[in-house]
Nucleic acid binder design. Structure first.
Length: 467
RNA sequence: GGCCCGUUCGUCUAUCGGUUAGGACACCAGGUUUUCAACCUGGUAAGAGGGGUUCGACUCCCCUACGGGCUGCCA
């Protein structure tokens, strides 16, 4: 009985990929990928005024960054307008739609008159619904769906449950405009049907529309897909997400240095739960994701939790993969590309870097010791750590490091030995060492730094600092 | 205005009529420590309000409040 799952993401190309849209795409992707199904992409570009190729490119880029791959070609809704019109005419032929000659001005006048009379819900009832074709004028007409005027339409939604909408509150929606251009309400249904979409997972701003769309499916005798209307995402203050909240486009999250795996995990968990699972891999997400686990209330963005999750993913990431992600991040953030030497250094240092950073820029900050080259520039705190006494100790240290085999054990005994000789605990001595080696005070362990940059470079930097 | 949806710790959530309402992030206190990150121990903290139904409601029903959505020849 179970047909293969086909889901889709259908953004309109009027801007960047919104974080909420990204989550919708992610849910669709997870659902399909977890079931061996297909995940399709359709660009709803029928609004020629607002659609731009740049926006389409931005959306594709955003999906690519998040690692959401789609099956087949990207479908352009605009390209399918002839098919939409064909369906509208078929509805006409079936008698489930009719020609309406009412002009926009007439409809506007009707609404105005109705609200003036105090009617709170002016549903426009076209006088042409049951008109004799013989009375049709030779004028432009729109095609309206002949919707049921009584009774209820029940949407069986996987997230919202059974939602009942009274048909009397719905007007006969236009499926084909008088200029022959199909409306969105018709196009979605035709496209979803033609593309074989079995599960429609989308924002709950479409919940009410689902009733009208169900009518189109019925009018054409098509199977209604499984519906799942998911709540929107709110800003940290519980208000609708908008630009004043800061980052709303996924590209901004990339530029802030959140790893894609962390974003996927966080976004999956936002509005969906699988028991107490908080941190999980893509494999687990695909295996666990289901419609039943989706919550009904809008969720707020929480950057602290995003960071925490991202930190765990950075720590768990493969070194080479992490390096690639860092390279991409720097490009996205408009930072200078790393040199080959810096990349190699990063790779060697990754083991002591990745479990101390929650974001990529934080990792890079702590990697300064391997990214910088002599002479090491020091920030203010690092300069303060190099007082005369400290310099003296560094100076005294270098010969001891000269003829030693470079291992953590040896370094440990030399450094702690020197510290105790001066009546210092190791913490006191680590400060000038950090300053000398990295030029800053927030770094990996001093042993790790020395091991990574090597004996010669270590001694050179200590001598520089002691001078 | 009408219709539709929603409401558990600050936040994300678990619970699917019977629990001392659990976990995670954040926060606070203490510990560890080589800075940061991390880690260990403990702690503060929730069913919007009001009615029902029931032996028993966070859970089912109704009302109110608040939030959101839809109400276009926009998508």
């Amino acid at each position: 009985m179970s047909r293969p799952v086909v889901t889709r993401f259908a953004p309109s190309p009027t801007g960047y990929l919104h974080i909420g849209g990204a989550r919708t795409a992610l849910f669709n992707w997870l659902y399909a990928r977890g079931r061996g199904g297909k995940f399709l992409l359709r660009i709803e570009d029928t609004d020629r005024e607002r659609s731009t190729p740049e926006a389409t490119a931005a959306i594709l880029q955003g999906l690519a960054w998040l690692g959401l791959d789609w099956d087949g070609e990207v479908v352009s809704q605009f390209d399918r307008k002839d098919r939409h019109a064909e369906v509208a005419h078929e509805m006409l032929a079936r008698g489930t739609a009719y020609k309406c000659f009412a002009t926009a001005a007439e409809i506007a006048a009707f609404r105005e008159a109705e609200s003036a009379k105090g009617v709170s819900y002016p549903v426009f009832l076209s006088p042409w619904r049951d008109a004799d074709p013989a009375t049709h004028p030779d004028a432009p007409f729109a095609i309206r769906m002949k919707a049921p005027r009584s009774g209820d339409t029940v949407i069986d939604d996987q997230v919202q449950g059974h939602v009942t909408i009274q048909n009397a509150t719905l007007d006969d929606m236009i499926v084909l405009r008088s200029d022959g251009v199909p409306t969105y309400m018709l196009a979605v249904v035709v496209d979803d049907h033609d593309m074989g979409v079995t599960h429609v997972i989308r924002g709950d701003d479409h919940l009410n529309n689902a009733a009208r769309q169900a009518m189109v499916y019925d009018a054409m005798g098509w199977d209604i897909p499984v519906w799942a209307h998911i709540p929107l995402i709110f800003g940290p203050d519980g208000k609708k997400l908008s630009k004043r909240h800061g980052a709303v486009g996924v590209h901004e999250y990339q530029a802030m240095g959140y790893p894609a795996a962390g974003m996927r995990n966080y976004l999956t968990r936002l509005g969906w739960a699988h028991g107490d699972a908080e941190f999980f891999t893509d494999q687990q997400a695909r295996a666990w994701f289901d419609l039943a686990g989706i919550g009904r209330a809008p969720a707020r963005l929480d950057f602290k939790k995003l960071e925490n999750i991202c930190g765990q993913h950075i720590a768990a990431a493969d070194d080479a993969a992490l390096l690639h992600e860092i390279v991409a991040y720097r490009a996205a953030a408009g930072l200078e590309a790393l040199t080959g030497g810096q990349e190699n250094g990063l790779l060697r240092a990754m083991y002591c870097l990745k479990d101390r950073a929650k974001t990529l820029p934080e990792l890079l900050e702590k990697a300064e010791f391997v990214l910088a080259s002599r002479p090491i520039s020091r920030d203010e705190a690092a300069q303060k750590a190099l007082d005369p006494v400290s310099r003296g100790i560094l100076h005294e240290l270098t010969p001891r490091l000269q003829n030693v085999s470079w291992s953590k054990e040896n370094l440990e005994s030399i450094l702690t030995g020197t510290a105790t000789a001066h009546g210092l605990n190791f913490g006191k001595m680590a400060a000038p060492l950090r300053s000398a080696l990295a030029g800053r005070m927030v770094t990996p362990s001093v042993y790790d730094m020395m091991l990574v940059i090597g004996q010669i470079e270590t001694i050179a930097r200590l001598e520089d600092a002691a001078a």
